[in-house]
């Protein structure tokens, strides 16, 4: 019997807590896996994992409206009905247009055309640490949630083809659209936080999000020694909510150096304090995943 495909997502709430650094490290420890970088607004994982682009596919995020000035009767109905203020002086602002097509519906003279718009590219890369699927979104485009969902779908297909047993997802910060696309249907969410008041505040929001979608979660406290009192608060809160802490990483200058050198921490600084803690963390995550029942059925609570 083949192993079921497991999916683990790395999230944070607050940005800059170390999601990508950790995901890149995990990629070095894991065996056969596919990695999906779902932070499509700011995809940084390939800056560490490098590798060669094997394929690139344009991503059609949706439709964009265009008003043909020759056919336009200047009645202004489109402008009146657009709820996204995307039409001004009978011209479409392509950044504000969400492609709903209401202008097309209300136009009495058939002057509005809707066409598919490319809003980014999806890449499949072969790296020394496994296949990475990521995307470049065109700057300022909407539909980052749809693109994140597509990146995950491509990563799953790759994993099936390769017979890999794990998809590791590097998620975006926050709790909105692309985060929801990254977390739904995963088996386990790993939430990276830091011992700051802000980090604690945003952590509790993502834990709530995981609960909302019925996804089990575990916590990593990065730079835990930066503010011991704040770390204790987070530990207490985790104990209260019965959430496992799978890792505590020390503040380590080598982590920043590894990023500047464009290498995953286990490659740049094996045996450093943060690297040893990261390896333990990964072992804890794998042990936890073994005890977690497959969440293959997406729980559509809230949808």
């Amino acid at each position: 019997m083949s192993m079921p495909l497991r999916q683990v997502v790395v999230l944070s709430g607050k940005g800059g807590t170390g999601k990508t650094t950790m995901t890149a490290g995990f990629a070095c420890y894991a065996g056969k896996q596919v990695i999906a970088d779902c932070d499509v607004d700011a995809s940084n994982l390939s800056l560490l994992l490098q590798g060669e682009v094997r394929s690139s596919t344009p991503f059609i995020g949706g439709l964009k409206a265009w008003i043909d000035p020759d056919r336009c009767s200047r009645c202004g109905k489109c402008e009146e009905h657009c709820r996204f203020s995307a039409i001004k002086d009978l011209k479409v602002d392509s950044m504000a247009c969400e492609g709903c097509g209401v202008c097309h519906i209300v136009c009495p003279s058939g002057a509005v055309e809707l066409s598919e718009a490319v809003s980014g590219d999806i890449f499949v890369r072969d790296t020394p640490y496994g296949t990475v699927v990521d995307a470049d979104m065109l700057p300022g485009e909407p539909n980052s949630g749809k693109l994140a969902a597509r990146v995950r779908a491509v990563a799953r297909e790759e994993a099936m083809l390769q017979g890999a047993s794990l998809v590791l997802v590097d998620g975006p910060p926050g709790t909105g659209c692309p985060v929801i696309s990254s977390i739904t249907g995963t088996d386990l969410a790993i939430i990276v936080t830091e011992p700051t008041v802000s980090g604690g505040h945003d952590l509790s929001r993502v834990v709530d999000l995981a609960d909302h979608f019925g996804i089990p979660c575990a916590i990593i406290i990065n730079k835990h020694d930066l503010n011991p009192a704040q770390s204790e608060d987070i530990e207490r809160e985790c104990a209260r909510r019965e959430i496992t802490i799978v890792g505590r990483l020390p503040f380590d200058e080598l982590v920043g150096e590894a990023i500047i050198n464009g290498q995953p921490l286990p490659v740049y600084a094996p045996g450093s304090p943060a690297e040893i803690a990261l390896r333990d963390t990964w072992e804890n995550i794998m042990a936890l995943l073994d005890r977690t029942p497959p969440g293959g059925l997406v729980r559509l609570k809230g949808l």
Binding site: G15, G16, V40, D41, A42, M95, A96, M137, P139, G140, E141, P142, N143, S144, P172, P173, G174, G176, P178
Partner: peptide, 10 residues
């Protein structure tokens, strides 16, 4: 502003 470069930032 929020982080990122998509619609909320715009």
């Amino acid at each position: 502003c929020p982080p990122g470069t998509s619609c909320p930032v715009v």
